[in-house]
Design a protein around this nucleic acid. Structure first.
Length: 523
RNA sequence: GGGGGAGUAGCUCAGUUGGAAGAGCAACGGCCUUUUAAGCCGUAGGUCGUGGGUUCGAGUCCCACCUCCCUCACCA
């Protein structure tokens, strides 16, 4: 069947050529964004005209009169093609158009009898003939696997999907702007590393032929960014991919985007302020009415923006089935995430690791025996694991999914944190993680800059960590760098994909990554 | 890897107890100059995920496998 449709379309393509028209178009830079056209239309104005370009999403052919919807990246509107308004060749061309073709139409701009703003074309230009029909015009592409594997079809037909990726870009731009405003410089450090480190994860391995050397795709940029602190770069950040050779889930993609930043002469308290500012301001930015208005034009199918856009009480809101954004309380930014309402307003709640563990598990992080008992009660295998690993297993099992509202968890068990400075109490590390909606979003510490302690930490193996998942791979050059003296510093990592999930109400990380990793299709 | 769910036309989906594979959209032919998922008349389109099995007969029942989704495990 598909072959037949493609053959029909190739026939039409040939007929287009016989008309002397290039079916693959060429430069066309006179078109105006559709959202702008709809926005400037004046009901009392006369002699208005427009020139728009985009993909045909709907065609209603009435013989000598054709109505069609044309969509560009910011909006959709109606065009009308009439036999007696076009020259003979253009009319022949109009009758050969299919859903999915890219065209441009120019002519007078008027409302139709039923009130829809419409370009009554006097010029029609074919920009690209489409040989494969688009998905169903009303339901769009629903099949989840197809949406991930053939993202171009998802983007073409599902505006709410495009919307998520537009927001992703806006959020990352916003974060970069905030960091630049604080005097941070963006750097790029190796993705391919001879020694991997900075996190506890299994790496991907690759090979450089000329050097005949195995290299690892980085699991973290941390050790390189700290070298830059040694070199005198006092405020650095990197937003880039990390690769971890681990399982896939709704919260894990093997390659994911991480923000890491380091600030000399700061500590984890400063990192908390920065985290709060980045995330709460990104949420406020993304919930701003101006953005909601622009988005709304996608759903409007040609009705003028403004008709649906004024929300009562100055609140911004947006509802399209599963993607909903709202600013609910004035002065606070509250966004829905699934069944939850998450309040992104600063300041975020703070609690120590030990307080939370006592509250939810009834044991102290300093009492290894009690933690083991609790672990057995929870069905966690605690044999052959060090106390700190058992404690953390209990923490993850009992506390994590309770942390829906933004919460800084402070002061981790020192044994879990080889790169972190100890507190006055040597058993704790000056580290926090930020949890939201039960997900780990950020991780930061007051950085360890004592080379002797750092070396000892890296040499010590913790029992209970799986083979190959330890960060204790000795990086002599990193230790040498510390011997030259690294300023006391705060370091922060934020999982960008998860932030995007929270701010776009996406329950799966695959919905915020354009091309998530799936099993390759066989044959 | 364990558990649960799904896979039927290009797309969105029905398919009863096992008894002749369906609808809408898209496509093709025809009518139609103000339609809104246009309408009307007609035509065509299927390896029912793959491979076995049970049966007179399998989209439907059984087994294995493939892919995706959810969940658990894994995972800073």
């Amino acid at each position: 069947m598909l072959e037949k449709v493609q053959a029909d379309r190739k026939n039409k393509l040939q007929k287009v050529r016989e008309l002397g028209v290039d079916p693959y178009g060429s430069r066309y830079d006179t078109a105006e964004p559709i959202a702008d056209v709809l926005g400037r239309f004046d009901d009392d104005g006369e002699g208005q005209s427009a020139d728009v370009a985009g993909r045909l999403t709907l065609i209603r052919d009435m013989g000598k009169l054709i109505f069609a919807h044309i969509r560009d990246q910011g909006g959709q509107m109606q065009i009308c093609l009439r036999k007696n308004a076009l020259d003979e060749r253009s009319w022949q061309l109009a009758k050969l158009l299919d859903l999915g073709d890219l065209v441009a139409a120019a002519g007078p701009l008027q409302r139709t009898r039923t009130g829809e703003i419409t370009v009554f074309a006097e010029r029609l230009t074919l920009l690209c003939k489409s040989l494969t029909p688009p998905p169903e015009k009303f339901h769009g592409l629903q099949d989840v696997e197809a949406r991930y594997r053939r993202r171009y079809l998802d983007l073409m037909t599902n505006p709410e999907s495009r919307e998520v990726f537009d927001r992703r870009t806006e959020i990352i731009d916003h974060i970069r702007g905030k960091l630049r405003g604080r005097g941070f410089v963006e750097v790029e450090t190796p993705m391919m590393q001879p020694i991997y480190g900075g996190a506890a994860a299994r790496p991907f391995v690759t090979h450089h032929n000329t050097l005949d050397a195995d290299l690892y795709l980085r699991i973290s940029p941390e050790l390189y960014l700290k070298r830059l602190l040694v070199g005198g770069m006092e405020k650095v950040f990197e937003i880039n991919r990390n690769f971890r050779n681990e399982g896939l889930s709704t919260q894990h993609n093997p390659e994911f985007t991480m923000l890491e930043l380091y600030q000399a002469y700061a500590d984890y308290e400063v990192m908390m302020e920065i985290t709060e500012e980045l995330i709460s301001s990104a949420a406020a930015h993304i919930a701003a009415p101006g953005l909601v208005r622009r988005i709304q034009s996608w759903y409007d199918h040609g009705c003028e923006p403004g008709a649906i856009l004024m929300w009562p009480g100055g609140q911004a809101g947006f509802d399209a089935d599963h993607k909903a954004y709202k600013v609910i309380k004035s002065g606070r930014t509250v966004l829905p995430f699934g069944d939850e309402q998450v309040d992104f307003s600063a300041p975020f709640a703070r609690a120590t690791y030990d307080e939370l563990l006592r509250e939810h598990a009834g044991v102290s992080m300093f009492d290894g025996d009690a933690a083991r008992e609790k672990a057995r009660e929870l069905g966690i295998d605690e044999s052959n694991k060090d106390d700190a690993v058992v404690v953390n297993d209990v923490f993850e099992a009992t506390v994590e999914d309770k942390l829906i509202q933004p919460t800084f968890v402070l002061d981790y068990p020192a044994d879990l944190c080889p790169l972190t400075r100890r507190g006055d109490d040597e058993r704790i590390a000056l580290r926090f993680e930020l949890y939201m909606a039960g997900m780990e979003i950020a991780n930061a510490y007051t950085e360890l800059n004592d080379p002797a302690v750092q070396e000892a930490n890296l040499r010590r193996q913790l029992r209970g960590e799986a083979d190959g998942e330890t960060m204790r791979v000795m990086d002599e050059d990193f230790l040498n760098a510390l011997l030259h003296g690294m300023p006391p510093a705060g370091g922060l990592g934020i999982g960008i994909d998860r932030v995007i999930m929270l701010l776009t109400n996406s329950k799966s990380i695959r919905d915020v990554i354009l091309f998530p990793l799936l099993r390759p299709e066989s044959q």
